[in-house]
Amino acid sequence: MRSVAVLVFPGTNSEEETVRLLRVYGADARLVHWSCAQTLGEYDAYVLSGGFAYEDRIRAGAIAARDAMMDPVIDGARQGKLVMGICNGAQILLEAGLVPGSGDSRRPTAAFTRNVPPHFICKQVYVKLTVEPRRSIITAALAAGAVLPAWAAHGEGRLAAGAEQMAQIANENHLAFVYARADGRVDDAATPNGSALHCAGLVNRDGNVLALMPHPERVFPARSALFESFVKGVEAS
């Protein structure tokens, strides 16, 4: 059985439900706190859960992205290990330059930034898979166009980037998930934060790093087709 590290930075707050749901699908998932970062290289995959790592000082995810704890995650991603970031974890992956991954490491080319309107939101949403499932090993076990429930709980979840980077995201299949209605229709009303391209989640070029803003692990009862697909991908990788 392959092992999955769920990273815990100072300020992470969704690690318990994340590790619990990974175990539902058979993953050997363990919490790894910042004081034990030296063990991270031993893991086969990584999940960065939600919260407010380092209180989101400077920018959401900025300090955590440059923390020593991210060194083995970045090295692992380059080796093809699977990495999934949810909410604050997604912000960290963008700040680390791993997603969309068009920039150098730790040189971000996009961000999940302040919502429009500029309020914290907490509501159930749906996200729709917009890429071919096999585009990413993390989504490979999902149905094409899958619509998944999740909880948006963030003040900074709007995708923003320069025009060139935004075109790259759209044209090079980085847009993995968009906000949608329960029936799969995509429109502004289903997008709670003004995110460009209705973006809820991005995948890197190689398909092994996924950043998703809403929380699949907060849906009740605790089931998530995405987590199931992620665990299958870890076992297959």
Binding site: I58, R59, A62, R66, E95, R106, R107, P108, T109, A110, A111, T113, A160, A161, G162, Q165
Partner: peptide, 11 residues
């Protein structure tokens, strides 16, 4: 600036 203080995508 380049290492930490500015994310050029949004700042």
């Amino acid at each position: 600036r380049d290492a930490l203080l500015c994310n050029p995508a949004i700042e």
